[in-house]
Design a protein around this nucleic acid. Structure first.
Lengths: 338, 338
DNA sequence: AAGTTCACTGTAATCGTTTACAATAGCAAC
DNA sequence: GTTGCTATTGTAAACGATTACAGTGAACTT
């Protein structure tokens, strides 16, 4: 380990001078500066960030804790966060809480213990306690999921409205018995449910079969749940799912049962994904502005780092309804006798 | 910031005693231990990892640098890495090099400067220089992509063999004019090309149209390249792509041209993804054992951390050919007159 | 009773930086 | 020649932990 001491020794100066050269501040004569720089090169010296962070009590890394790294939504957002922070000179460390509150806690602690300059994350649940414990100490931006605390910056999409529009679209295209697959572990899912419900109410319909996941659902959960839905005596005419993993699972089940989309059953989901674009017919979805979400979150964080006293903001973005064949207007048949 | 000093003061002991309680080592009387623990709780003390790392000259975080966080292959592998290392008590920090050598370098430096305990990564290119500079200092495992240096642990799949089997499968099913979309920025792509070539040679065929990407390709690249391929006077009967993003792009283009798979053109690709399962017909692929790859890499790293002198290992896993409709036996028509 | 051993605890050095402060020197002004 | 200023450099104290080492009693041997 070559340290600042070695550099100082070789250059024949004190460590203070080396440090000054390192930080690029004025107050070092050109001659010494050159000597020091030469020594740095000669020894291939790299400053120890750990020591620097300890002493300066601030770092240039930012933490990003996502709740499911396998969900394309989060990877897309992550890319945006990274791009933006990279441009601002920060290094981003991701963590995957894996929808596991215990892991989330661990990573939150780890970030705190590593003294990151800031933190962006999507809480697994709205564990208020977590907030009081840590976020207050570190500049934080919450992503994707609302938390009750108003004292923290957030970037969200209007989930209720998005789900409302998605459901209304189905209704307007003639679907009546509309089932829903719903992840209820996050606020996101619950808000989307509200939108779904509101659309139905507005048309005098009542929610059809619904399956609620209190654990964060994966593709397989969506599949088996849909199998169950499809076996129901009055099969729904359409299914809404509140995230892309559930949507993929639903389609898998529909395929397995040999049903046609949308003739036998329509499908509408959330998030633009490769599969939703590639299957035939394409799947109608609410596309979230992932890049913008990530970028906004990163920008909010940068601002907060600069001014910790700044009042918290809540940025709400809109999802975009992308209409594809999976929800095409219902052709024949009696309009929902159930 | 409540530090070990505050705890010591409140408990009426020295910092050494607090530290001993913290590390759980023996040599502290039950009475004092209780006092200290109480003080820790009362102050809600959390050890400063930065200070600990600096002093102990080792940390419990491991870095994982992937070359494209949007590629499902890497997120799947990441999950496995994380599971394994989490179980071993490590915290994993991901970084996304984004197929950008400059970013890769930055993150490599960042990991080094953060004094991570170990590093798992898939090099963007085989920049040997990077190796000599850093990996020697930190226990490192290379993922997915081969590097010339033999002094480092690696986990790879047998890319040539996998591509060979994939291509042979197409040939055996009656396809003759087989085009290829190839990412050549990594060793992976080049090895896969070799397998493709070998299969053709074995059957006395010569490679049909091929499009090579020297930059890391994304979906859109696959799409536009395939458009180009499809416009060729002698359209290929089948297309092989060397990663899932290119594959998705190819399918997108095929759809756009209104062609049928496999009647008009067959498709075979790499990596199990949602879209490859969900489209109809499903896409024939080589499924990489992502979870096993990640797990193996993590285990190799743990072993290396424990014994840095251990000779380097190279673990080569096999891909699995998953046959789906996109490569169904060629029905009618003269068998490849081109 | 003196010497040994043992278990416990504290003192202080250390990790690699940054930075407040002191020291020195050069120069101009008086 | 003394004073005061500025610019440059060094000294040494932090940052918050760990840990080698020394010190203190108590218990046990002989």
């Amino acid at each position: 380990m070559v340290s600042i001491k070695d550099v100082a020794e070789l250059a024949g100066v004190s460590t203070a001078t080396v440090s000054r050269v390192l930080s690029g501040k004025a107050g070092v004569s050109a001659a010494l500066r050159a000597q020091v720089e030469e020594a740095i090169k000669a020894l291939d010296y790299r400053p120890n960030l750990v020591a620097r962070t300890l002493r300066a009590q601030q770092s240039v890394t930012v933490g990003l804790i996502v709740s499911d790294i396998c969900n394309p939504f989060f990877t897309d957002v992550s890319r945006a966060v990274e791009d933006t922070l990279y441009a601002a000179g920060y290094t981003v460390f991701f963590c995957n809480a894996d929808e596991n509150p215990e892991k989330e806690r661990l990573y939150l602690e780890a970030m705190h213990a590593q003294k990151v300059a800031g933190l962006i994350y999507s809480p697994t649940r709205q564990q208020t306690e977590n907030f009081e414990a840590l976020e207050i100490l570190i500049p934080t931006v919450i992503l994707d999921r609302a938390v009750p605390s108003a004292a923290v910056d957030m970037v969200l999409i209007d989930n209720e409205d998005a789900a409302y529009r998605l459901t209304r679209h189905l209704i307007e295209n003639g679907y009546r018995r509309i089932g829903v697959l719903l992840g209820a572990a996050s606020t996101t899912g619950r808000e989307r449910y509200k939108g779904y419900e509101r659309a139905l109410q507005e048309y005098g319909l009542s929610p059809a079969q619904q399956l609620v996941f209190y654990q964060p659902p994966r593709v397989e959960d969506g599949r088996s749940a849909t199998m169950q839905l499809l076996e129901s005596p009055v099969r729904p005419e359409a299914i809404v799912t509140t995230n892309s993993l559930l949507g993929a699972g639903a389609l898998l089940a529909i395929r397995e049962r040999g049903l046609r989309v949308p003739e036998d059953i329509a499908l509408a989901s959330f998030d633009e994904t490769l599969w939703a674009r590639l299957v035939e017919p394409g799947v109608t979805i609410i596309a979230q502005p992932t890049y913008e979400i990530g970028k906004t979150a990163a920008e909010l964080l940068l601002q907060r780092i600069q001014d910790p006293e700044r009042p918290a903001r809540k940025v709400i973005l809109q999802g975009q309804l992308v209409i594809r064949g999976s929800s095409a207007p219902r052709a024949a048949g009696p309009p929902g006798k159930g």
